[in-house]
Design a protein around this nucleic acid. Structure first.
Lengths: 150, 150
DNA sequence: ACCTTTCGTCAGTTTATCTGACGATATATA
DNA sequence: TATATATCGTCAGATAAACTGACGAAAGGT
């Protein structure tokens, strides 16, 4: 049957970013599961990426992650039930609660950062240090431009 | 309040890929909506990327996109309702149907490719042709390695 | 002719987002 | 100070985008 997709080799930059991003994600979250944290899913990174060392308010997390507080509450609820977060009343505001990482949550954050570093090192092995360095620098430049533009 | 996120500047390669991928996606699908196709969402690209010029079977699309046929059927159903696809019985197999792009669907595919090219050109303007070229080549290398590894 | 596989669908579930409404509390103003 | 307004987190419900399991109809192999 002559049924080749039109855009198979015709790879857009978006497609390249998607494929590599997904590969990275599979690697990191697969390894995290193997290390004893199978309950941590990619969506949870919104919490780990934005939580402060002394904890943060739900509203702050939601704002930083660019999502609604209801959505963030859903993620926090799951992590809390699994023992990665605890939430304590905010002494300075009776409406608010401070969400903090537990020891287990800190371990997940540390593992995520370590595994991401390892995954990047493996990429460098595969495509070469030079290219990997250029890749990272180009992406950093791009992201800096995005930050400027808002 | 001293509540800076731990990993704000500490950007992993995965985070860089995610930020740029999402920026690309916002740009392309935003422009696509502005061109008269607001109903096309990123998930639909699984169909446009993998459909053949003469149409494809649902099962083929699902396999290529790496998802279940039920999930692919859900995407196809939406595109069909919006007039981007039509499905005709497969003359060579009574169980199967061939999903084909309509003229409107072809227009979407063309627009997606054109807008992706334009978005990439704008990235090159922002970070420089040299860096953009290196970025694309590094990603292409990486993806080639992924294809080899399976 | 029968067994097995494949195609697409039906039914139901989960994850990850969203909107709208609301009580409780905090802050600003008249 | 009394009141109006804004903010914090939650309740309820919707939607998108995936999943699993089961199944009838059709095809293919023995």
């Amino acid at each position: 049957m002559d049924d080749r997709p039109v855009t198979e080799q015709n790879r857009t930059l978006g497609a390249l970013l998607r494929l590599t991003y997904e590969a990275m994600q599979r690697e990191v979250y697969g390894a995290l599961a193997a290390r004893g944290f199978p309950e941590i899913r990619p969506a949870h990174s919104a919490v780990f990426r934005h939580i402060g060392p002394g904890g943060s308010r739900l509203t702050t997390l939601a704002e930083r992650a660019g999502m609604t507080k209801q959505s963030m509450a859903y993620l926090v609820e799951g992590l809390q039930a699994a023992g990665h977060l605890r939430s304590v009343p905010d002494p300075s505001d009776g409406r608010a609660r401070i969400v903090r990482l537990t020891a287990r949550g800190e371990a997940v954050l540390a593992a995520l950062l370590a595994l991401s570093g390892e995954a990047e090192a493996r990429v460098a092995e595969r495509i070469g240090e030079r290219r990997a360095g250029r890749l990272r620098r180009a992406l950093e430049h791009w992201v800096a431009e995005l930050d400027e533009a808002g």
